[in-house]
C-alpha cells in the first residue's frame, strides 16, 4: 500500500517537475537565441527602431512598427471584447433565467475553445472583403479587421471569467442591498460590479494577453505591412505575425534569426507581466471578498 502511494507521489511530482523543466528550457532558449542580436543592435535601437527590413543589405532591425502594430490590434480588440464580454457576463448573471444560463454558459466556454484559424479564415474570406467594400478601403486586411476578429475571439474568455467573478459575489451582499431599499440597478452598479471589479479586471487582462499572443488570426487578416500605423484602417504587422511569417525563411543562427527570437523574448515578458498583474489583482479580489487566498 505504502509503496503504491509512493509511486504515485513520485509520478505526479515528476510530471509537475517536467512542466517546470519545459518552462525553464523555453526561457533559456529564448534568452540564448534572442540575446545575441543585442551585440549588433543596441537594446533601445532594437525596441525603438522605426524600420524593420531584416533581409536588406545592410538590414534594419527596428521593431517599433511591430510593437505598435501589436498594440493597435490589441487595443482595438479591447474596445470590442470588454463591452461585449462584460455585458454578456452581466446578462448571464443578472438577467438570464436558469434555463438560459444552463445553455449560455457551456456555449460560451465552447466558443472560447474554437481554434483561432477558424476565426482567421472567417476574417479573411468574409469580414475583410466586407469591410473593404463597406468602408471603401484600398485593402480589407487592416489593423481594424484584426481588432474586430481578436475582439470577438477574446469575448468568450472575458465573459466566462467575468461571469465567474460575478457569481463569486456573495448573495448576502445582494440581500443587504435590497433590504436597505436599493433597486436592482443600484444593487448592480453600486454593490455587485464594484465587488466583482478586480475579478472583471483580471478577465480583461487575461483576454488582452490572449489577444497580444494571438498569431494565426492576425497573420491572416491584418495585411502584414511592417510600417508604423497612423490609423486603424491600414495594414499592420504584429510581433507574433512577424515571427510566424519569417521564421521559416531565415537562416539558422543569422542576425535575422536572433532578432526573431528577441521579439519572442519581449512578447514573453509582455504576457508574463499581464499575467502577473492579473494574478495580483485576483488575489486582492479574493481577500476583499473574504474568500481567503
Amino acid at each position: 500500500m505504502i509503496k503504491k502511494e509512493k509511486i504515485y507521489k513520485y509520478l505526479f511530482a515528476s510530471l509537475a517537475f517536467a512542466s517546470l523543466v519545459f518552462l525553464v528550457g523555453i526561457t533559456i532558449v529564448l534568452f540564448k537565441e534572442g540575446l545575441p542580436i543585442f551585440k549588433e543592435v543596441g537594446f533601445f535601437e532594437f525596441l525603438g527602431g522605426k524600420y524593420w527590413y531584416p533581409t536588406y543589405e545592410p538590414a534594419d532591425f527596428g521593431i517599433l512598427p511591430l510593437v505598435l502594430g501589436s498594440f493597435a490590434v490589441t487595443g482595438g480588440a479591447l474596445f470590442i471584447c470588454v463591452p461585449l464580454g462584460v455585458g454578456s457576463a452581466l446578462y448571464i448573471n443578472e438577467i438570464a433565467s436558469q434555463r438560459q444560463k444552463t445553455i449560455l454558459k457551456p456555449l460560451i466556454e465552447i466558443l472560447a475553445g474554437v481554434p483561432s484559424i477558424v476565426y482567421g479564415f472567417f476574417g479573411m474570406v468574409v469580414v475583410a472583403p466586407f469591410l473593404q467594400k463597406a468602408l471603401g478601403l484600398p485593402v480589407g486586411q487592416t489593423a481594424f479587421t484584426g481588432s474586430l476578429m481578436l475582439g470577438i475571439m477574446a469575448t468568450p474568455t472575458v465573459c466566462s471569467i467575468s461571469e465567474d467573478a460575478l457569481s463569486f459575489v456573495p448573495k448576502s451582499f445582494r440581500y443587504a442591498s435590497f433590504a436597505t431599499g436599493a433597486n436592482r440597478w443600484q444593487t448592480l452598479t453600486k454593490v455587485i460590479i464594484p465587488s466583482a471589479g478586480s475579478g472583471i479586471s483580471t478577465a480583461i487582462i487575461l483576454g488582452m494577453s490572449r489577444a497580444v499572443g494571438e498569431t494565426m488570426t492576425v497573420l491572416m487578416v491584418t495585411g502584414g505591412a511592417a510600417v508604423i500605423p497612423h490609423t486603424l484602417f491600414q495594414p499592420v504587422r504584429t510581433m507574433t505575425a512577424t515571427i510566424a511569417a519569417e521564421m521559416g525563411e531565415t537562416v539558422l543562427g543569422s542576425s535575422h534569426y536572433h532578432a526573431l527570437f528577441a521579439i519572442g523574448l519581449i512578447l514573453f515578458f509582455i504576457t508574463l507581466v499581464f499575467n502577473i498583474i492579473a494574478e495580483l489583482i485576483s488575489r486582492r479580489f479574493r481577500i476583499k471578498l473574504g474568500l481567503g487566498r
Binding site: F173, F178, A179
Partner: peptide, 16 residues
C-alpha cells in the same frame, strides 16, 4: 424595505 430594516444571520457588510 426602507421602512422595515433588516439585519441578517451572518454579518454582511459590503466590501466598502
Amino acid at each position: 424595505r426602507r421602512q422595515i430594516g433588516m439585519v441578517f444571520q451572518k454579518p454582511n457588510p459590503f466590501p466598502k
